[in-house]
Design a protein around this nucleic acid. Sequence first.
DNA 1: AGCACGCCGACT
DNA 2: GTCGGCGTGCTC
Length: 825
Amino acid sequence: MEHVSIARVALAAATYAIDRPYDYQIPQELEGRAAPGVRVIVPFGAGNRRTEGLILALTDETRLEKKIKAVLTVLDDAPVLGVDGIKLALWVRDRFFCTVYDAARAMLPAGLWFSIQDSYRVAESVDRERSYDAAGRSDHARRILDLIWAAGGSAELGQIRAALGTKDPNPALRQLTEQGILVLETSASRGVGDKTEQVAALALPAEEALALVTPKRKTAPLRYAVVELLCGLGSAASKEICYFTGASPATLRALAKSGILTLEKREVFRRVSAGEVEPAAPPVLNQEQQTAFLHLDALARAEKPAVALLYGVTGSGKTQVYISLIRAALDRGESAMVLVPEIALTPQLLRIFSAHFGENIAVLHSSLRAGERYDEWKRVRSGRARVVLGTRSAVFAPLKDLGLIILDEEQEASYKSENTPRYHARDVAKYRCARNGGLLVLGSATPSIETMYLAKSGVYHMVTLSRRYNEHALPHVFVTDMKEALRSGNGTSISARLHRELASNLERGEQSILFLNRRGASRMVSCGECGAVPTCPRCSVHLTYHSANGRLMCHHCGHSERLPDHCPECGGALNFIGVGTQKVQEELESLFPGVEVLRMDTDTISASQSHEALLSRFEKEKIPILVGTQMVAKGLDFENVTLVGVIAADLALYVDSFRAAERTFSLLTQVVGRAGRGGKTGRAVIQTYTPDNDVIRYAASQDYDSFFEQEIDLRRLMEYPPFRDLFVLTASGLNEASVLRACQQLRRSLEQWIAAWPSPENRPRLLGPAPAAVAKVNHRYRYRLTLMCQNTKEVRGLLAQMLRAANSDKENRGVSIFADVNPYD
DNA sequence: AGCACGCCGACT
DNA sequence: GTCGGCGTGCTC
């Protein structure tokens, strides 16, 4: 009897609605190379278009005897995912409603991916005449042959498509292929995914270039603006040129075509390097740290998996405990992982870890070049690196014998992926530890409400560090009422108190940091007469003003337009609303003439100066005042900073999210903790319009426990996490009515299911359809349903089934629907 | 999603 | 007659 090997394959071309293992026959010559975890190229669908696939398992029987296609190519010599990796991918699919391939994409480094190119070649020993005979009267076939012969006997599918315009080349291609005239060749080339940017440079001397565009200055103002900008800079990234001039990439291409400038790709290179570091001795722990370490290490040694919250106030030295735990894990022959919210903001952490673990550490994060990331991944996979330091996606690093995962600042939103697969690194880490009998340590000074609840109720272990390192006193915190300031005629964003404290810092030669959160940092424009606010033509948001280029911009789709001189509606004068870092900077400069004020936000950070460079200037040159957004709040310790100010503390509270309070508390606590890390006692000024708000009061007194008690009651009452999980189903599409209809249809199905619930206890709740926080992005309307219930296998199965049904329902054509579990926005 | 198949109207 | 528009159903 003939033996046939079958591969169960997960396909890249499969959408969520049709994602399942597909069976392919393994041809004799590929036997042996086709193994689980290996990627292959297979034909798929009626047109047999080539797609990448991942072998999940091998078997020798198939459920369908009839039509089974064969694997065309094996792409890898060794599996890119082990058995555990495949299991993890399947788990991610089940938990986060994505395809297996989506999961695999998140797990593997970009440098490993192939780009698949289909091209048609004239078959051996077929000459021109015979090929045109075969084309017969088909105009399409003749045009395709024209193209292929002109290109030297072979052409890419993309070119063929482009040559036929809107016409479908497939029937003609099939005709020619069936007659043996053309052959389809599929090539897979590696090396995709490197971050590149386009750089434009003047191709002519500045005067010549300018002379060429000046005559048409009136009719082609953008061309002129681009050349003028480049005359000053010589060369610049295309993205930046477009940002500053408002020109489109098409304008740049046109200029390149007329020989005025050149465009080329350049790799973006932003490696965060530890540089040369001296090897460090094991950290010496103080009494409290030692107790924490012993407790956690005992958990790590135990056979059973465990999760522990390391609840340590800012400055209590969590890092030393982490390092001791990792050393202990390595000594036991286990590997370890440390996840941080954002590596670029914590270069000092990288240095510390390099000093302790040297070559044993691999760094994985998104701003590495694809090649470097791939190299680091290979070091992990081969076992040469046993410690991984990285951001969210590093949670998938292929460490063997993983005994310890540390998730630092576990409450941070950056651990939740906003794109498919919409996973949370904490959940993935928990899963990996559970499978390996490892320990997951969640570190934080302001834990998420969910984590603290589970720690208090004994599901997680709790380990506390309550003493600040070197016994520094907490900063003095002043809460100032901005309503009061407004009433007393202070129209600026700097209260009298903050003014006084800044002045005294200037006198003493100490530095200050002022902080504006993101919402406060954007400035809008409104008409003083009719009140109109310029809105994005593609999205349902107001445009914000960017001082760097003097333009109005949309943060969702990238639309930008010149700031109009007058209101486009009524011709009235336009006013700026919102605070903005630039406005604060201006106010400070007029309050303290001659004092240098450094500003740090997305406007000031560009290719020319990274925020690291800006911060090191702040530190080295002892610039008196730094004004910035979110990015100044993180992980920065400056000896000489003794005053921090929060310009508008309540802005983060008025976001439509049940996490708004938690996030505001955490942010304010972090910011306040920035003051006085050195020998001197710090001060913090929190400016707010709602000084009596509990979140602000508790943050001011650094009283996490009271904040938690209040918030957990609220969560219980509202049935929010940790008491229920939220499943948010979002439908999006160009046609608002069909998006809404899809939601209502889903709602009806869910209502039926809920109605059959056995008891009123724990009965799921359903909210919506409601427009998403930003109801329209890039002309696509977005509506969402929220299902609040326990995250069980049954619920996930049901939702998966409904999503598949809704996405393949022809009623819902043009609408796509996806699920997000416990989203952060 | 992407492709083929099949059924209808417009035009050589 | 046939080319090409779009609705319908399937993908190992």
